[in-house]
């Protein structure tokens, strides 16, 4: 089942001054249960594409559909709510609320969704256990390592039970061990719970673990291949 579908997506930054064509007619589909890496050199448009799919920015031309809903034409407030219910985000840099503990960061999203308190507590515990931070629930982000922070971010992204999770260079700031650890967790969730992941990266070790690799060059899709991660 197709979750994400883009139609001739174009993005031009600064159209009036120094136009930058960040995306040129990108058409891509993502199916449920995918574990997809978006790779390409810096400036190739990975972040821009993820932002379009995640409804964080509007395309200059073209459309983005999530489960058949055209997110690219939604009004700001509606898009925010749509994101809350349907899309999980993990960003490159620290993106947790610094004054909240790990558990509070995870619970916060569910609170915004208006879930029942009891349910929030249970689910928070479960998610933090899943990312291996069951014993660091009450730690603030500053007390956690970069890898641990990203694991909390994954738990938070998952908390809202989104249709898919977008991760923009989630391992860029992590050492190898932490990066592999994060990948293990994401992979396990993908395999066991059929959670869809789309992540950008230019780290070969991360790319090796994806099942689908989409390569971008100059704002366009250059290659789109299926690989068997277990072989490499």
């Amino acid at each position: 089942m197709t979750i994400v579908r883009t139609e001739k997506l174009c993005k031009v930054y600064n159209p009036d001054t120094v136009p930058v064509h960040a995306l040129n007619n990108v058409c891509i589909e993502v199916d449920e249960g995918e574990f997809t890496a978006l790779r390409g050199p810096s400036g190739s448009g990975k972040t821009t594409l993820l932002n379009m799919i995640g409804g964080l920015d509007k395309p200059t031309e073209g459309k983005v559909f999530i489960d058949g809903h055209e997110i690219s034409s939604m009004k700001d407030s509606k898009r925010i709510d749509f994101r809350l219910q349907n899309i999980g985000f993990v960003f490159q840099h620290y993106n947790l609320i610094p004054v909240f503990t790990a558990a509070e960061n995870v619970a916060f999203i569910m609170m915004l969704q208006g879930r029942d308190k009891q349910e929030i507590r249970k689910r928070t515990d479960k998610l933090l256990d899943q990312v291996g931070l069951g014993d660091r629930k009450d730690a603030r982000p500053a007390q956690l390592s970069g890898g641990q922070q990203q694991r909390v971010a994954v738990a938070r992204a998952l908390a809202s039970e989104p249709r898919f999770i977008l991760a923009d260079e989630p391992t860029a700031n992590l050492d190898t061990e932490a990066a592999m650890n994060l990948l293990d967790i994401m992979e396990k969730m993908n395999r066991e719970q059929n959670i869809t992941f789309v992540f950008s990266t230019h780290d070969q070790r991360v790319i090796d673990r994806a099942r689908r690799v989409v390569t971008m060059v100059d704002g366009a899709i250059d290659q789109d291949e299926i690989q068997d991660p277990d072989k490499t």
């Binding site: 995640g54 700001d76 925010i80 709510d81 809350l84 219910q85 915004l112």
Partner: peptide, 16 residues
């Protein structure tokens, strides 16, 4: 501002 950006990204309403 960065933090606000993240909060809005993950679905917090501007009003909230």
């Amino acid at each position: 501002l960065r933090e606000f950006g993240v909060l809005l990204s993950v679905g917090m309403k501007r009003g909230s």
